[in-house]
Design a protein around this nucleic acid. Structure first.
Lengths: 209, 209
DNA sequence: GGGGCTCCTCTACGGTGTAGAACATTTACC
DNA sequence: GGTAAATGTTCTACACCGTAGAGGAGCCCC
């Protein structure tokens, strides 16, 4: 029974949990499954994390921690900097669509997230952001980005979504929804990236500093 | 056993489910609890809805359905109209903070939501919105609003949040997070309503039509 | 060598979503 | 009016969930 196994740590546990969620979705993340993946009794996890919610919070932190600030360059505007940051954040979330819902549902504050915010503030300052409420700007952009990604992912990998969604869409006719039909026919099919970019530009460009 | 009971319908079920979520939170919504509240065997629900996910989707639809367009008035700008719509949407969500996470996590398309979108499009048209991508604007504002409300509610009624959140905040010092500390000291405590308003104004004002 | 500590395992409990059969009650039809 | 089908409800049962609580294995220090 003395199989050589790397020691259990909070980090290893969260990595394994993240992998499970990433591959199979949140509701397949089970303490039993987690234990199996770590080659350990499920209950062993409880010596490193108090409960399953803490595991989920660890995943959220793991995601925030992976966001990288853009390489600084001279003469960059704060608008460019903040835009790049949230483009990177969105990329990070979309790379793990099954994990994205977790980020939306659990409180976000964690060391990794605070470190990122501090980094953003420093970069904004460096780029000459004059406004006094940089935090509000960051919060608004974070909300926008998460909300948009949630809509995107839950629509994309909508499990059984096809059922009710298709049924609802079937009721859309030029008679019942004239404006909607015209909108769709007029080429609403803007790619998600472009949609995001559109709102991002508006939010940043319209910010009164 | 012939107790007189109003007949079970999809609507009554979803109302009951919504009430449970609203009062006790999503994870207290149980098929057994739902049955009990309806005075019925839990399994009876399955003759009106295929599974629990459908119950949740019903709740989402219920929330969308309750959003009311502002009373039309002459000479109103499209900026005003769309702003009012999403102010109303946010109010609707915040009135049921425990139900808000569900809206963020399940695909949104439903008859009620499509009807609302159709209504918004009509009002935008009436108010002289000239742009061709009204749907993109709506999507961006919906993302922003939901994202912001999620952050607000998950922070507000953060169950055990106090634990890890407080721990993370305790690591914030002027040495480790100089910019963050300055920001907080400088009066970051902008009320949530004002924060939302700030981003809303930017997003709408910065929209290039 | 032995006591304590840390990490892990085992067993068990109450609760979950829901499949499948049985039952009751209403409706449809000749 | 009798019978068959359809419909809505209940009962029972199953596999699985998070986790409490008691124990066991290996280590370190005195």
């Amino acid at each position: 029974m003395t199989e050589d196994r790397p020691p259990l740590t909070r980090e290893r546990i969260i990595e394994a949990a993240f992998a499970i969620v990433d591959e199979a979705g949140v509701d397949r993340l089970t303490m039993r499954m987690l234990g199996e993946r770590l080659g350990v009794d499920p209950m062993a996890v409880y010596h490193h994390l108090p409960n399953k919610a803490a595991v989920l919070d660890g995943i959220v932190e793991h995601l925030w921690g992976g966001v990288e600030l853009p390489a600084p360059s001279d003469g960059e505007s704060w608008q460019f900097v903040i835009g790049e940051v949230f483009r990177a954040f969105r990329r990070r979330l979309l790379a793990h669509p099954r994990a994205a819902p977790v980020v939306g549902t659990r409180p976000a504050v964690s060391p990794a997230m605070l470190a990122l915010v501090e980094g953003i503030l420093a970069r904004l300052h460096r780029a000459g952001f004059a406004g006094r409420d940089a935090m509000v700007l960051i919060d608004c952009l974070a909300g926008y980005t998460i909300g948009k990604v949630l809509a995107e992912t839950s629509a994309a990998l909508g499990d059984e979504a096809t059922g009710p969604v298709a049924a609802a869409l079937a009721t859309v006719t030029p008679q019942t929804h004239p404006f909607l039909v015209r909108e769709i026919a007029g080429g609403y099919a803007l790619a998600p990236d472009d949609q995001f970019e559109r709102g991002l530009a508006a939010l940043i460009g319209g910010w009164s500093d």
